[in-house]
Design a protein around this nucleic acid. Structure first.
Length: 815
DNA sequence: TGATAGTGCGCG
DNA sequence: AAAGCGCGCACTATCA
């Protein structure tokens, strides 16, 4: 049957119909269809050019009704909607790029949205998108509708017989999947402020042979009363527990979290396999969606449907169930495939078995518990920031009345109206108004500007930004507030976790904001972090003798770098000698001797004598990380200028880099080794066995892309392992203490935040520090480091906690 | 008008 | 030819 290619309504100014037939780009879709052997006809959405590029509401409605008529006239059942306008006519919405090649069924016709081929002039990706459209058109045309899996055996659980059938089937290995009204289990309103409660619409279990669907009372077609439904859930829960059912999921943390939040069943304890996490370890560079993976790895059809159907919000129940059945079926099919793939990589499998899969359950629990927000301080902080913002605005008024948050308006005011020379340009050549640029401007407004921005950003990030996620819960008759950030275990290419809604890992160190996060009544928040873990790991991997020695001798390496850097230039004579003299209570001391004294006393003692030392250590920290991971001296120059207002000459900057590698002479060899391995294999391995695939490193010629891959080959094994040690410790903490004593709140790359029942704070903190210094899983994964690992603990609200010792003292004082 | 890309900044 | 790595979020500019 012929497929109809329906082109944009042409405009008077820009006759796309003309272009579709004339320009080579516009012919791309037609060529793709020819290559797929799809017979087609071309038609225009509207016979004569219209006045505007945008469709008004009236036009939209007209075209919408017109669509089936065109199809009928041309005797076509499949219609390719080319460009934004026909898509908008059908759906009433924009977003054709996202909908590209995803068929939509309506009035017995199948519409295939397609991006405008004309876009190929400036976007090479479009060529591929058009090809996918052509392939989809062929499939739809051959199938006579949207293709779906033929092998499915959907069973709707609705009566005594089907309930029996389901309960009998709950043995062995089953896929598990739910459909929900939204993504956040504690949502009450949507982003437009309309009431939109979080609801589970359907839950399901499946195998390759049969797929069971249970509509919840939130769905209009649910065959059960509330009571019947919850009785059924109890029966299912008993069967899962009694039969030790092994649940297979795709991103099961999502489903299990909802089940926990809405029903309270800890089904996450039965998680047996997760296809998303498995695929993440097998290919961290690509995407991990179930549909995409099933299509590429199992040859599945594209069974995606529109959002409303997915949410169970359309009357087309059959479509909803079929969608769910595909999810259940292909979760198992995909698992079978991934198991085979992973068996070929036993070390990767060990990371999956021992870290990633257990973390899925661990973080389901952590997200369920959430982090506790001190709401009284929340209001206090909000008032403070609003006041601060107003004061800055009042003071800024004298320089002009503009939107101070707009970089464009600000740039105009500063560099045109006030005639200041722009010190920094953005990449596009506009005068920059970034903080480092402002710092270089000598004008009385900069202080207020920076303050204004800071307050405004904190307000919108942490006050306004958090509000939609605040979850209110009554405990002992009083309201308490929690955030439930979502941790993506597959969020980064290195194995770190990412965090969103909101992102807890970017909360500023500012006490006012950070200490909003604490523990609920009866519990205390603790934070334990791995001190200087990345440097320790880098030193161990590179077998860097000087850095290892520093760690063994418990010298702060940032401090070591700082002092050696100062010594090299023979600078800061007065400060060095003064500080050493005060510390040793001497009348006189030589410079070289004073340097050794400083090394010995450490940064904290030095800072007590002169606060300037803090800055020098901070600077050295940036140097350590920068040079370690391949920073070039030019960047160091910029860094010194922007952060310390120090103009360093090229020679000085170059010398600083040379000095770093003289201080730590074993790093260059390690850099070379990592590059060599990445180039030879196309990937590098972390000590745990995790792989970081870097195809760009295999390039035979030197290019920026290869350079980037090589630097990742140096950084990844370090960053990966640091995070893995942290996760291993978090897992062990969970294994050693029950939920009645300890609850994980969050991890922040090299730190663990947990709530501890008050009576156990001392014991648990000490134990956690011990665990972090040597998690048992390191032995299981056969990881040995040449450097000692050290951990540090703080007790109390986040960012405002005190050492365990001080905390115990304060308890004694209080009695 | 609304989705996408770029910038800037918070964190490790 | 260009040279720290890894994120998420708010805001603006840009394009169709």
């Amino acid at each position: 049957m012929t497929v109809l290619v329906l082109v944009d309504a042409p405009t008077k100014a820009d006759d796309r119909r003309q272009k579709l037939f004339s320009s080579p780009e516009a012919k791309l879709l037609l060529k793709a269809l020819e290559r797929e052997d799809v017979p087609y006809k071309v038609a225009s959405l509207y016979p004569s050019p219209i006045q505007t590029k945008k469709l008004g509401k009236k036009d939209q409605a007209k075209f919408h009704d017109y669509l089936p008529h065109i199809a009928k006239k041309h005797k076509c059942q499949t219609v390719i909607l080319v460009g934004a306008m026909p898509f908008q006519a059908l759906t009433g919405k924009g977003g054709v790029t996202k909908a590209n090649a995803r068929p939509i069924e309506k009035d017995g016709l199948v519409y295939i949205p397609c991006v405008s081929p004309y876009a190929a002039t400036h976007d090479p990706k479009v060529g591929w998108q058009l090809k996918v459209v052509a392939m989809r058109a062929r499939e739809v045309n051959e199938f006579g509708g949207i293709p779906f899996e033929q092998d499915l055996n959907s069973i709707m659980v609705k009566d005594k017989k089907t309930i029996e059938q389901l309960l009998w089937a709950l043995v062995g290995e089953l896929s598990f999947d739910i459909e929900t009204s939204c993504l956040y289990p504690w949502q009450t309103h949507d982003d437009k402020g309309n009431e939109a409660p979080a609801q589970i619409k359907m839950i399901g279990f499946g195998t390759l042979k049969e797929q069971f669907h249970i509509l919840t009372p939130n769905h209009p077609d649910c065959p059960f009363t509330e009571k019947e439904y919850f009785d059924l859930l109890e029966d299912i829960d008993r069967a899962i527990t009694r039969n030790q059912v092994r649940l297979v999921t795709h991103n099961g943390k999502f489903d299990f979290l909802w089940i926990m939040a809405h029903y309270g069943f800890p089904w996450y304890e039965h998680q047996h396999y997760d296809t998303m996490l498995a695929h993440y370890l097998l290919d961290e560079n690509s995407r991990h969606g179930l549909k995409e993976l099933a299509q590429t790895l199992c040859g599945a059809p594209d069974w995606d449907v529109d959002k409303d159907t997915k949410k169970g919000a359309t009357p087309d129940l059959e479509k909803f169930v079929r969608y769910h059945a595909h999810d259940l079926y292909y979760t198992i099919a995909l698992k079978n495939k991934l198991v085979k793939m992973m068996n070929a990589e036993p070390r990767v499998k060990a990371v999956y078995d021992h870290i990633l899969l257990p973390c899925s359950s661990l973080f389901t629990e952590a997200e369920y518990d959430g982090v506790y927000i001190d709401v009284s301080k929340f209001d206090e902080a909000e008032n403070y920031l609003r006041n601060e913002l107003k004061q800055c605005e009042d003071r800024l008024k004298q320089w002009g009345s503009i939107e101070w948050g707009s970089p464009k308006q600000l740039a105009k005011l500063l560099f045109e109206d006030l005639g200041i020379d722009p010190p920094v340009m953005t990449e596009k050549g506009n005068p920059s108004t970034s903080e480092s640029a402002l710092n270089q401007i000598d004008h009385p407004c900069v202080g207020d500007l920076i303050k204004y921005r800071g307050a405004k950003q904190q307000l919108s990030f942490f006050i306004e930004g958090w509000k939609p996620f605040l979850h209110r819960r009554k405990i002992n008759g009083e309201w308490h507030y929690f955030l439930h950030p979502s941790f993506k275990l597959h969020g980064t290419v290195t194995g770190r976790l990412s965090c969103e809604h909101p992102n807890l890992q970017q909360v500023p160190r500012d006490k006012r904001i950070r200490s909003l996060i604490t523990a609920p009544p009866g519990w205390t928040l603790i934070e334990c972090d791995l001190s200087q873990i990345e440097l320790r790991i880098a030193a161990a991997l590179a077998e860097e003798r000087n850095m290892i020695e520093a760690f063994v001798r418990k010298i702060d390496v940032h401090w070591l770098t700082a002092i050696r850097e100062i010594e090299r230039g023979g600078g800061l004579k007065e400060l060095v000698i003064d500080t050493a003299k005060t510390w040793k209570q001497l009348k006189k001391i030589e410079y070289s001797e004073a340097i050794e004294v400083l090394l010995e006393m450490g940064p904290d003692a030095a800072a007590e004598i002169n606060a300037e030392w803090k800055e020098y250590r901070k600077k050295a920290k940036a140097i350590n990380f920068g040079y370690l991971y391949g920073m070039w001296w030019k960047k160091f120059k910029l860094y010194a200028r922007d952060n310390y207002g120090v103009e360093v000459t090229d020679e000085q900057a170059g010398a600083s880099r040379t000095a770093f590698f003289e201080l730590y002479p074993d790093y260059p060899e390690w850099h070379k080794r990592q590059k060599r391995l990445a180039r030879r294999d196309g990937y590098i391995e972390t000590l745990s066995g995790r792989k970081r695939r870097l195809p760009d490193a295999m390039s035979s010629f030197d290019s920026p892309a290869r350079g980037a891959a090589e630097r990742q080959a140096i950084n990844s094994p370090v960053q990966s392992l640091a995070n893995e040690i942290n996760l291993m410790a978090a897992l062990q903490l969970r294994n050693e203490y029950g939920r009645d004593k300890v609850r994980l709140s969050a991890t922040v790359h090299d730190a663990i935040l947990a709530c501890v029942k008050n009576e156990y704070v001392g014991e648990v903190t000490l134990r956690l520090l011990k665990i972090m210094e040597r998690p048992e899983l390191m032995d299981v994964l056969d990881i040995n480091l040449l450097v000692p690992i050290e951990a540090e603990g703080k007790v109390g609200p986040w960012g405002a906690g005190v050492s365990l010792k001080k905390w115990k003292e304060s308890l004694r004082v209080q009695g």
